[in-house]
Amino acid sequence: MTTYNSNYFRSGLKIIFDKEPYIIESSQFVKPGKGQSFVRVKLRRLLTGKLIDKTFKATDTLKSADVTEITVSYLYNNRKFWFFINKKTFEEVFATKKVLGESIKWLVEQASCLATLWNNEVISITLSNFVELKVMETNPGLKGDSVSTATKKAKLITGAIIRVPLFIKEGETIKVDTRSGEYVGRVR
């Protein structure tokens, strides 16, 4: 395992801090007029996504994290685990509901995702920014409501409920932003 001196901390570097994997969001080398130089670092904890600020002496060292990212496709779930297949090796990996978090609302079969593994265990699943989902239930819109900014609730094929414009009908496919959970547009 590679060891990095704090002078070489850069954005995107994955390290082990407090026995857990972190990614460096930003680092700033500071050399004051008096005293020892230091490095101010913003670290994102890969297990939870929490952001912390930390200051390291110029002589401090940390080990690199053995974190890998693989492209996977969603297969199925058994309500306890969500199973994915590695697109290169065809090996199956799984994630828990806790790891997936809000992403569960947007998962459909064969959806391509990015899985982050640490010690051969999935610690996060990142979906693409936009998904196309079919509307399963919604109230019918009124004639002439195609230009209005008013919205109504719609239940999607994954079970997620979002706000959509009044002109969206059952059976239509829409584009949804997975980061905010908002309607983006209709797919033709």
Rank of each mutant, 00 (worst) to 15 (best):
V30Y: 15
Y76V: 00
K50I: 10
L166S: 13
A154F: 10
K98T: 12
R79P: 06
L117W: 10
L127G: 03
F84C: 00
V184W: 09
E121Q: 11
S146H: 15
D177I: 05
A154N: 03
K87A: 00
T151F: 01
A65R: 03
N86E: 01
T116I: 10
K19F: 10
L127I: 02
Y22W: 15
L166E: 14
V176A: 06
I104L: 00
P140D: 05
R40P: 12
N78Q: 02
K105N: 11
N77W: 06
T55I: 13
G12M: 02
V108I: 14
V99H: 05
I15M: 02
Y74R: 00
S124N: 13
Q36T: 14
Q28G: 04
N119S: 11
G141R: 09
L117P: 11
S6Y: 06
V93A: 02
M136Q: 11
S27Y: 08
A95L: 00
V67M: 01
A65V: 02
I174R: 10
Y76C: 00
S73R: 04
A111T: 13
T178N: 01
S27V: 05
V131T: 08
D60S: 07
M136S: 10
S180R: 10
N7E: 14
G49W: 04
E137W: 14
I162Q: 03
D145Y: 13
T59P: 06
E92M: 02
G141Q: 07
S124A: 06
G141V: 08
V187C: 03
F29R: 10
I85W: 05
I16A: 07
D53G: 12
S73T: 04
V164T: 10
K14P: 09
Y22G: 08
V39I: 12
T126P: 05
K153C: 04
F81C: 05
D60P: 07
K152E: 01
I104D: 00
A160C: 06
L133D: 12
I16Y: 11
T116H: 05
I168T: 08
V135S: 06
Q110D: 14
V164Q: 03
P32E: 05
I123A: 02
Y8H: 15
V187H: 09
K88D: 04
I125L: 01
E132I: 15
G35E: 07
Q36I: 15
R163W: 14
R79Y: 12
I70L: 00
F29V: 13
A160D: 08
K87G: 00
D18F: 09
R44K: 15
V30N: 11
F81A: 07
G159I: 01
F9Y: 07
S180G: 08
T151G: 01
K153W: 11
K155T: 14
T2I: 14
V108N: 13
